[in-house]
Design a protein around this nucleic acid. Structure first.
Length: 279
DNA sequence: AACTACGGCAACCGCTCTGTA
DNA sequence: TTACAGAGCGGTTGCCGTAGT
C-alpha cells in the first residue's frame, strides 16, 4: 500500500521560488508563525506544496540564516569534526552551527570539504588516512606497521585474504621483509584456531566473531571489495564489526577511524591524531 | 563570440520517524 | 495495537553561472 501524497499536487507549482512567493510566505509566517505546513500554502495564497513551503522557509527565508561562505578556521573545522563523529547527520551538525541549514552544510560538504579531504589523503567517509596500496612502503614507514601481526589476523577472516597477503608482500621493495611476512603468514596458517585466537589476544584484539566473518564472506561472494581487520585498538571497546573496513576496488586501503584519535596496539608506536587538513 | 564542461546550490523526492485517534 | 497524517531528514536532481577552449 503506497503512501498518499503529502498534498494534492495537481496544479501546484514546482521549481524556483519567485520574489512574490517569498514575500507571501514570509508575511504569512511573520504573522501566524510556522504552524501546520499543509495549510500554510492555502492560507498564504500560494500554489505550492506544504513541504515545498517548509523547505523554502527553513533553507532560505528564515531570518536567522547566516548567508555567505563558510569560514575555514571555524565553521569548516567544526563541520569536519562533527562529521567524524555524527556522520551524515546533517541536521544534527546544523544544530551546532547557528545560522546554517542542514541543506547548506550538506551541499558545502559534498562540493568542497569532501574533495579537500580526499585530496589530502583522507577518506571523507571514515576520516581515516586513505592510502594507496601501490605505495605500501608509505604505510610501513609512516606507521611502523607490524604487518606480520596483521597477516596472522587476516587469515582468520577469509582465506582469500591470502591473496591480499601475497599482493602486500610483492609490493614490498625489501626482500627481507617479504620473506618475513610470507613466513609469518604460512606459520599462522598452520596454527590451530586456538593459537590464532591467542595471537589476537596478545594484540589486544577480539578474535573475529561469526558476524563480521559472515559479512566478509558475503561481500566476497558478490565480488564486492574484500574486508579485512585492522590492528586497531579502540578505547571505547568498539565491536569488531565496526573495525571491518572495505578494501576498495580502486586499489587503496582505508584505515578506520571512529574517533578523533586512535592508535594501533600492535606497534605501540603508531598514533594518529585527527588527520591534518590543509588547504 | 559561441560552445562546452564543470561546479555550486536550491529544490524535489521518497523514506523514516513521531504523534494521535 | 494499528493505521494514518504530518513533519523531518538525507540523497539526488536539475538549473544556472562561470571558466575554459
Amino acid at each position: 500500500m503506497g503512501r498518499s501524497p503529502c498534498c494534492d499536487k495537481t496544479g501546484l507549482k514546482k521549481g524556483p521560488w519567485t520574489q512574490e512567493e517569498d514575500l507571501k510566505l514570509t508575511k504569512y509566517i511573520q504573522i501566524h508563525g510556522p504552524g501546520s505546513w499543509r495549510t500554510i500554502p492555502k492560507n498564504a495564497g500560494l500554489q505550492r506544496c506544504g513541504k515545498s513551503c517548509r523547505l523554502r522557509w527553513t533553507n532560505y527565508l528564515r531570518p536567522d540564516i547566516k548567508r555567505g561562505r563558510f569560514s575555514f578556521e571555524e565553521e569548516e573545522e567544526i563541520i569536519i569534526q562533527l562529521h567524524s563523529v555524527l556522520g551524515n547527520k546533517w541536521s544534527a551538525i546544523a544544530a551546532r552551527l547557528p545560522g546554517r541549514t542542514d541543506n547548506e552544510i550538506k551541499n558545502y560538504w559534498n562540493t568542497n570539504i569532501r574533495k579537500k579531504l580526499f585530496h589530502n589523503g583522507i577518506d571523507p567517509v571514515t576520516h581515516a588516512p586513505h592510502l594507496d596500496l601501490s605505495d605500501l612502503s608509505t604505510i610501513l614507514n609512516l606507521a611502523q606497521f607490524n604487518l606480520s601481526n596483521l597477516l596472522s589476523l587476516q587469515t582468520l577472516v577469509n582465506p582469500d585474504v591470502s591473496k591480499l597477503v601475497t599482493l602486500l608482500a610483492s609490493s614490498l621493495s625489501n626482500q627481507e621483509n617479504q620473506e618475513m611476512l610470507l613466513n609469518n603468514h604460512i606459520n599462522t596458517m598452520n596454527q590451530s584456531p586456538n593459537q590464532q585466537t591467542q595471537n589476537c589476544n596478545s594484540m589486544h584484539l577480539s578474535p573475529p566473531s561469526s558476524q563480521p566473518l559472515d559479512k566478509a564472506n558475503a561481500v566476497h561472494e558478490n565480488d564486492e571489495p574484500y574486508f579485512f581487520y585492522h590492528l586497531v585498538n579502540f578505547s571505547d571497546q568498539t565491536s569488531l564489526e565496526n573495525v571491518v573496513t572495505p578494501f576498495s576496488n580502486d586499489n587503496s586501503v582505508t584505515l578506520p577511524n571512529h574517533s578523533p584519535q586512535f592508535t594501533t596496539q600492535a606497534s605501540e608506536n603508531l598514533s594518529f591524531s585527527r588527520p591534518g587538513f590543509e588547504v
